[in-house]
């Protein structure tokens, strides 16, 4: 499949909310095509249709939690890394 690196760098950087400087764009676009080629190596492998993808290591007994209340963080702990707050609220950007 042919992918235009410039085009998709534009698209995925919007999806991932990362603004790129012109300099970064140039660097990334240059290497992206090579890396995608490198990824494409796996497309040499044929006959994978019936192979189950392995998302994560199979586990035996599941780890579940009983419905029992534990401790919460104190308000100071919650807010200690927050830069903008109003009372106990964390200030966030506009959603509109």
């Amino acid at each position: 499949m042919n992918i235009d690196p410039a085009e998709w760098v534009e698209r995925v950087s919007k999806l991932a909310l990362i603004n790129l400087s012109e300099e970064e764009k140039k660097l990334l676009i240059k290497d992206m095509a090579r890396i995608i080629d490198f990824f494409n190596m796996i497309n040499e492998l044929k006959g994978l249709d019936d192979v189950e993808p392995l998302f994560m290591m199979p586990r035996g007994e599941p780890v579940l939690r009983d419905d029992e209340v534990g401790e919460c963080l104190s308000i100071n702990e919650v807010l200690m890394n927050v830069k903008e707050k109003e009372d106990r609220f964390i200030k966030g950007p506009r959603t509109a």
Binding site: V9, V12, S13, A16, L17, I18, N19, L20, S21, E24, L27, L28, D31, M32, I35, F39, G92, P93, R94, T95, A96
Partner: peptide, 26 residues
């Protein structure tokens, strides 16, 4: 008074280095 995508983009553009950005994009 900025919108969330505006604020987040700025934070993420400054906060992450080039290799991290590359891997996030990939």
């Amino acid at each position: 008074e900025r919108s969330y995508d505006d604020v987040y983009s700025e934070v993420r553009s400054y906060g992450f280095g080039l290799e991290v950005k590359r891997r996030i994009l990939l």
